[in-house]
Amino acid sequence: MKLMIVEDEVTIRNLLGETIEKWGHTIVKVETFDNILQLFISESPHLVLLDINLPTFDGYFWCNKIREISKVPIIFISSRTSPMDMIMAMNMGGDDFIQKPFDTDVLSAKINALLRRTYSYLDSQQSVLEHRGVVLNLDDWDVSYDTAKTSLTKTEFTILKMLIQHKGAIVSRHKLMRSLWKDENFVDDNTLTVNINRLRKKLMELGKDDFITTKKGEGYIIQ
């Protein structure tokens, strides 16, 4: 799993990074705080550790921005200890609140429990898939980016769903065609190409260029 650390105190940021890497997770450290949302979109972490006291805008602001596009788990870590701070954190969309100084074993237990709850039954529970700001609604086959939205055909929906579910990995044309055949759509090689092109055009109209990358002779990938 990839965890994003948004912490202004360098010592604590490094401690969190070293500790989390020992647990086998990948980390993304935020070291400049002007556009945390853009880094979140590009890295697509599975969980965010977020301090309240940050330069420019505080953690509440960034939590709200993330919640506009994603349901990713967010744990606030802060030296603030008042009940109002904890209430604010939860009301802004936080999933948990840990006070500084913290015990690394307690932090580990909370992170792993939240990851299990969020991702262990992901396929059966979630109603949307989200990656880099693109949100695919699994109930009505709509895809949206920022404030724009469009509808997909069943074939386009199946292709985009499969690519997002395998983000970071190349999905072969053969695997895509097998998935579409399973869904009772007859798709040959030319039909797949046509649908990929239509899907790309719809994503471009939403303002998301180059979301799907062709790997010549291999297939397609969303990174």
Rank of each mutant, 00 (worst) to 15 (best):
L54M: 06
L54W: 02
L54R: 06
L54C: 06
P55T: 00
P55Q: 06
P55W: 00
T56H: 15
T56E: 15
F57Q: 14
F57M: 13
F57H: 15
D58T: 00
G59N: 05
G59F: 11
Y60D: 06
F61V: 08
F61Y: 13
F61H: 13
F61C: 09
F61P: 07
F61E: 04
W62S: 04
W62T: 03
C63E: 07
C63I: 10
C63V: 10
N64G: 12
N64C: 12
K65Q: 14
K65S: 08
I66P: 07
I66M: 05
R67K: 03
R67P: 07
R67D: 02
E68I: 07
E68M: 10
E68W: 00
I69K: 00
S70H: 06
S70V: 02
K71Y: 01
K71M: 04
P73F: 03
I74T: 05
I74W: 10
I74L: 09
I74H: 05
I75V: 11
I75D: 10
I77G: 04
I77D: 06
I77R: 03
I77T: 04
S78L: 04
S78Y: 09
S78M: 04
S79G: 15
T81C: 13
S82P: 10
S82E: 11
S82I: 00
S82A: 09
P83H: 03
P83Q: 05
P83V: 01
M84K: 14
M84T: 09
D85F: 11
D85C: 07
D85V: 04
D85Q: 02
M86F: 12
M86D: 09
M86Q: 14
I87L: 15
I87F: 15
I87G: 11
I87D: 13
I87R: 15
M88A: 12
M88L: 14
M88I: 08
M88D: 14
M88R: 15
A89C: 12
A89W: 10
A89K: 09
A89D: 09
A89L: 03
M90S: 09
N91F: 11
N91M: 14
M92S: 13
M92H: 13
G93S: 05
G93L: 10
G93A: 08
G93F: 09
G93E: 05
G93C: 10
G94I: 07
G94H: 03
D95L: 10
D96S: 07
F97W: 04
F97K: 00
I98T: 08
I98A: 06
Q99L: 12
Q99T: 13
Q99M: 12
Q99G: 11
K100R: 07
